[in-house]
Amino acid sequence: MDTFALIVTIAVALGFTYTNGFHDSANAIATSVSTRALTPRAALAMAAVMNLAGAFLGSGVAKTVSEGLIETPSGKQGMMILFAALIGAIAWNMVTWYFGLPSSSSHALFGGMVGAALAGSSTVYWSGVWEKIVLPMFLSPLVGLVAGYFVMVAILWMFKGTNPHKAKRGFRIAQTVSAAGMALGHGLQDAQKTMGIVVMALVIGDVQNQGDAIPIWVKIACAAMLSLGTYAGGWRIMRTLGRKIIELDPPQGFAAEATGASIMFTTAFMFHAPISTTHVITSAIMGVGATKRVSAVRWGVAKNIILGWFITMPAAAAVAAAAFWVVNLAFG
């Protein structure tokens, strides 16, 4: 039964990564597709390769997820907590995907972990939640907004005397690089989040010791599921990011992607903070769009997205807590 529970939990964790692909992998390529810098097929292939590469770049974020947010629970109870956390995250991802709202898969996962841990009487490291989740949740969009604005201002100033058509052609080529950077950063950030969950499951199942290196098969499986999720359902979110917030042109797309990728690499390598790729790219797009004129950004759509940010963690926590009570009732 213990082995079966471990296999089911890991399968559900990979299922979460698949739904994460619906949401966040689309963020990495939405701007490039919407500006026609890349065809959807080419963008998907590039995102798949770069997600896989990004998954192997580090393990700091995975360590934060597996050790820094909740105490690793043990035994049957521990596996039920982890299972319920994933159910909460997946349920919220599916709801927001259905409505085309780019809410954060990351914060759905963290909300699920906290809700299930509280329901299962496991310890929550509130200082870790505050420092690694809540603060970055507020700071990363602000940084994305401001940095996106100034990167775009710098581009406008540097290329002010250039032929507009020639500049756009050049930025379409440059977007291939910036989109690759976004996809690499996404693999670095989001593949590691699920790696942390799978490692936690392996520790609970006594297959691995706390602090051991992440197995290669875990890295490959998590990155592969991200890529599959992108292919299956990313287009709905792409529409919101690429068209509904503001109509992007290639220079704006490049500025947003370059800003987003820089923030993801900095937070992963310097702070080991698991930030939301959704928050970063969405706020960068808004910052870039505001250089045109403030009214060019469709703030009504932006308001709905921001509302989703604040609802995500408590909603996923509530679903995860309910899932734990149901699982505990059935198998406890």
Rank of each mutant, 00 (worst) to 15 (best):
F4V: 15
I7S: 14
I10W: 07
G15M: 10
G21P: 11
D24L: 13
A28M: 09
A30P: 06
S32M: 09
A42V: 12
A43C: 12
V49W: 02
M50C: 05
M50T: 11
A53C: 09
S66D: 03
E67Y: 05
L69H: 02
E71W: 02
T72C: 03
L82K: 00
S105H: 00
S106H: 00
H107L: 00
H107M: 00
L109K: 00
G112K: 00
V114K: 00
G115K: 00
A116M: 01
A117G: 01
S121H: 03
T123E: 04
V124S: 01
W126Q: 01
S127C: 04
W130G: 04
K132M: 01
L135C: 04
M137E: 04
F150Q: 06
M152N: 09
I155G: 03
L156H: 12
L156M: 11
A174Q: 05
A179D: 07
G185A: 13
G185F: 09
V199S: 03
M200N: 07
V203K: 02
V203I: 07
D206H: 11
V207T: 09
D212N: 11
W217T: 08
L226T: 06
G229L: 07
G233L: 07
W235V: 14
L241W: 08
E247G: 14
G253R: 03
A261L: 08
S262E: 08
F265P: 02
T266Q: 10
A268W: 01
F271K: 05
I285T: 10
I285C: 09
M286R: 07
V288R: 02
A290Y: 13
A290M: 14
K292Y: 14
R293H: 15
R298E: 15
I305G: 02
G308K: 08
F310I: 15
A317Q: 07
V326W: 11
V327I: 12
